[in-house]
């Protein structure tokens, strides 16, 4: 086996093994404990920033290049890192005291990503109601392994998958599956199109954790349809490739957890994004591709990552 092939295989294996354990990029047990005092609208408000971030991250990094060959065998194992930096407005929400506490005036209290200190308010006769603190998070991150295979008739497939159950540890349980495809439009634009252009769609389903009664803590579905343009430019032994895109997306999350009385609470959340605009750039080299982009939407996010495989795009 040629040395470079051995090196590439070792890198791919090491890359995959080292990143997979950090995939469950949020602590479901800690979140369940914190939200357990809430029900209904309070629980929705408390968890909404995390749902927004999860949806924004999950609908990222499908494509870092609009160039898809008309016909050739390309395969790459990829690890996009997708992040959201929380803003001040994500840190609080208006919650209403529960359990018959009076007065039930709305109060500004921490969301799940907000300050870790509980907020206590006084009511009739000096009774008190405490709203839980958040997890005091500055950011949200997600690493999702994905496999890209192409190309037939200018079309490639993309699969995201990871599943493991370590419920006895802090890592928890994750089951993620996503499948999508992208199709080159620039193949119909002549021999040397000014830009590479591609359309794509991706569907994903993720379940996380256990609600204590045999069901999932989080059950989400995400969908994205995108249009992307990119331009390849040789740069020494690399190919520099800026890109931009627009996408429609959806994200729905069903949350199920036990409240502090042991009763099951079921709520549904929507991700905050409908449309996103992406700008980014990548460097393509012989055995991989390195990229980074920023996504403008209701919840902005960024992503970067590395693809390893024969994804050489240089001409």
């Amino acid at each position: 086996m040629p040395p470079q092939v051995r090196t590439t295989r070792a890198l791919v294996l090491g890359f995959a093994l080292s990143l997979f354990p950090v995939l469950p990029a949020f602590a479901d047990t800690a979140v369940q404990n914190q939200v357990s005092v809430y029900s209904g609208p309070n629980a929705v408000g408390y968890l909404q920033p995390l749902a927004n971030a999860f949806g924004a991250a999950l609908n990222s990094s499908f494509g870092y290049s609009a160039f898809i060959p008309r016909a050739s065998f390309h395969i790459s194992l990829e690890a996009p890192v997708m992040g959201v930096i929380f803003e001040d407005e994500d840190k609080t929400f208006m919650a209403t005291p529960e359990n018959g506490f009076t007065p039930d005036d709305p109060q500004s209290v921490p969301t799940v990503v907000g300050d870790g200190t509980a907020v206590t308010v006084s009511g009739g006769g000096g009774a008190q109601f405490a709203f839980p603190g958040g997890l005091d998070l500055n950011s949200f991150g997600l690493v999702v392994p994905q496999l890209r295979i192409g190309a037939i008739m200018g079309t490639e497939a993309l699969v995201r998958w990871i599943a493991f159950d370590q419920s006895d540890s802090d890592v928890g349980k994750i089951d993620l599956f996503g499948i999508g495809g992208r199709h080159s439009l620039s193949q119909y634009m002549g021999e040397k199109p000014l830009l590479d252009l591609a359309v794509g769609a991706m569907w994903q389903r993720v379940t996380v954790g256990d609600n204590g009664q045999g069901g999932d803590f989080v059950n989400t579905k995400a969908m994205s349809i995108s249009l992307q343009a990119s331009k390849r430019a040789p740069l020494g032994f690399l190919t520099f490739e800026p890109y931009a895109g627009v996408a429609w997306e959806s994200f729905d999350a069903d949350i199920s957890y036990e409240d502090t009385n042991g009763d099951l609470q079921d709520i549904s959340l929507d991700g905050g994004n409908d449309m996103r605009f992406t700008v980014g750039a990548g460097f393509n080299f012989l055995i991989g591709h390195l990229w980074a982009d920023y996504n403008f939407a209701n919840t902005n996010n960024f992503s970067f990552g590395l693809a390893l495989g024969n994804v050489g795009h240089a001409e």
Binding site: V37, G116, A118, A130, G133, L135, D136, D259, T260, N261
Partner: peptide, 11 residues
């Protein structure tokens, strides 16, 4: 590692 206020309600 963080230390948070967790609220438990009971009756």
């Amino acid at each position: 590692d963080k230390v948070l206020d967790l609220v438990v309600t009971g009756e």
